[in-house]
Design a protein around this nucleic acid. Structure first.
Lengths: 192, 192
DNA sequence: GCGTCCATGTAAATGGTTACATGATTAT
DNA sequence: ATAATCATGTAACCATTTACATGGACGC
């Protein structure tokens, strides 16, 4: 899903500046399933405007760079509806933390604990932010509700999983507890 | 986390060809939290070899291109342990399906149902594959167990969430049930 | 016969992230 | 004072994805 469509989606919810759009993907409603930075947003908004899919209103503010509030046009709504038509691309999930944790036995115990703490904390924060985010009765569609609750549910499941299973990784047993620079070589399984 | 480190991780588990490494990220143990294609793997393996972090053994097979089995070296193990040291990058999750579903009220009912069915089915499949994947007693570390169970737990949570909440999106009530080319314009919230 | 699995690799294109450049206001 | 928030935009860099090129074996 390209940045243009993502921005159109934001504008479907309401008029916004580039700055506000990024916030929607950082904190807001969309944060759990897509993220984009300024580097994608501003060029996308320019193209949207050039293509007649959005309009701009400049609100000059003393000092600060003039706020550019974008609004979706009728053509923009059509283009968005059309973009929603095609078969969706596959989900993609990447987690360095989980990858590192998979090799936890190469790490000292404190580091394992620190990683687990941080990973739990970040999801607890995300959960809290989603919970606290006000739901605008007026324009909260069933779809928005569905994905919001989805986020809540998954974040909760993650926090719970870590609490319930961190003991698996926090047994001091493992190979080396000191940060040995020579990790114990294990015998490999024969190539299939 | 770059492709080189990812490949080293694969080789830590056991010797493998580029083809087999990709499978580990497509079906196997790592599939739930990182994915890479041939385009990243083969160049990475070449560089690994050039840097002395892996060795190759060519098993010529009649007809087919010679199988190149890579094995991690002692230097490779050290490099991998070091790569695990730094602070992990943030997780990244992207889902076109959830984004589309968030705007479900622009879609006809059948499409909403089809999307939900497909999304549930794919996670059910992923779940089954992870469950069926044999766990090699010998070399199954606590870390591997932790991330495997993590995958199982999350996939289960997703399938369950969809079953429990799809009704939110499957009410025929919504705006247009026929695929209207003019989606009902809603009044926007004032920009903040 | 046709499609899929095994198996490797390269090249181009796409597109996103990061860093840079700028600067006032507001809260601590 | 200092940090964070508001606010826009560009350019270089990096990396992944996609398409291409090749081809035998095996099951349907």
């Amino acid at each position: 899903m390209d940045a243009k469509t993502l921005c159109l989606g934001s504008l479907m919810v309401g008029d916004a500046t580039g700055y506000e759009i990024r916030k929607m993907f950082e904190d807001g409603a969309f944060s759990c399933f897509h993220q984009i930075g300024y580097g994608s947003i501003y060029p996308a908004l320019s193209r949207l405007q050039a293509d007649g899919l959005a309009t701009v209103t400049e609100h000059d503010q003393d000092g600060r760079p003039g706020k550019k509030v974008y609004a979706i046009t009728e053509a923009g709504r059509r283009a968005f509806a059309e973009a929603l038509q095609g078969p969706p691309g596959a989900d993609s999930f990447r987690s360095d933390t989980l990858f590192i944790l998979a090799f936890g036995d190469l790490l000292p115990l404190e580091r394992r604990s620190a990683l687990l703490d941080a990973y739990s904390a970040i999801h607890a924060t995300l959960l809290r932010e989603l919970e606290e985010e006000p739901i605008d009765e007026e324009q909260c569609t069933p779809g928005h509700l569905f994905v919001r609750n989805y986020g809540l549910t998954i974040y909760k499941a993650i926090v719970k999983y870590i609490a319930d299973n961190r003991h698996l990784l926090e047994q001091p047993s493992q190979a080396t507890d000191d940060q040995a620079s020579t990790p114990t070589p294990r015998t490999h399984a024969k190539g299939r």
